[in-house]
């Protein structure tokens, strides 16, 4: 496997402190989550007699989903900026080609998400899961980062539309919490979104049916977005 492009992306990140900061954000976010768990939960328990223990799986799910959301959106905007700056166009005429360019950018978000999922799971450390399940979750979350990055890049025709879609994506993330509302129609509707299935896997780590459904939903989203990109090339 050729890791040259990842090495180049790493160099680009180190050269541009802004990008480095954005890519380090999930790490800070996990620390904030941990701080909330350590300080806020005992406070709520003591002063409001509100026990958050029943919601730990949702907290973990939301914490893990935030990484692909952030990295996907960052990569999406990075590609939009490169498209506007004609850098993406230049890359497509190099031996890398258009698909090579997309592979280069998206694989970076994928790998970073996989690594951050493990970091997040062990940092937040509130819900026990078999390691194999964490690994499978990290792959699905990695795919989610690709889906989100591609939504921003291919569906949005400019930066402002990208921001509008980013706003919509933020709401799509909330489907991971839809079980909490206990509304049948909302749960059924949420099943069409990948984020819902991340919570389901954490809740039912040994269910083959849940895992297969999660893979299917992620695959459908990925295929649709790649198919759309293939037919309506934006660079």
């Amino acid at each position: 496997m050729n890791f040259e492009h990842i090495k180049n992306d790493m160099k680009q990140l180190v050269r541009e402190p802004m990008m480095l900061l954005l890519f380090c954000l999930p790490m800070f976010m996990f620390i904030v989550y941990k701080a909330i768990i350590v300080f806020l939960i005992p406070y709520l328990n003591k002063h409001l007699s509100f026990n958050l223990a029943d919601y730990y799986l949702y907290i973990l799910s939301f914490a893990l989903i935030m990484t692909p959301a952030m990295l996907g959106i960052v990569i999406g905007f990075m590609m939009i900026d490169e498209r506007d700056g004609k850098i993406a166009e230049l890359m497509t005429v190099t031996p890398l080609g258009r698909s090579g360019y997309l592979y280069n950018r998206l694989s970076f978000a994928f790998i970073a998400t996989v690594v951050y999922t493990f970091m997040g799971y062990f940092t937040v450390n509130i819900y026990k899961l078999p390691l194999l399940v964490v690994f499978l979750l990290s792959i699905l979350l990695g795919i989610l980062s690709i889906i989100l990055g591609m939504i921003i890049f291919t569906v949005a025709t400019d930066k402002v539309k990208g921001l509008t879609y980013a706003k919509g994506i933020n709401f799509m993330l909330l489907f991971c919490l839809s079980d909490l509302l206990n509304e049948r129609w909302l749960t059924n509707f949420s099943m069409f979104f990948p984020t819902y299935w991340i919570t389901e896997i954490i809740q039912n780590p040994k269910s083959i049916v849940v895992f297969s459904s999660a893979v299917l939903v992620h695959a459908i989203w990925l295929i649709i977005i790649l198919f759309r990109d293939y037919h309506r090339s934006t660079i």
């Binding site: 539309k161 706003k167 919509g168 709401f171 509302l181 509304e183």
Partner: peptide, 21 residues
């Protein structure tokens, strides 16, 4: 044209559902 109004209609509906809880 950039979809600000449409996205905020969706957001208002989402808040309506979420806050009903």
């Amino acid at each position: 044209r950039q979809g600000f109004y449409i996205i905020y209609i969706v957001i208002c509906i989402a808040y309506m559902v979420g806050l009903s809880w």
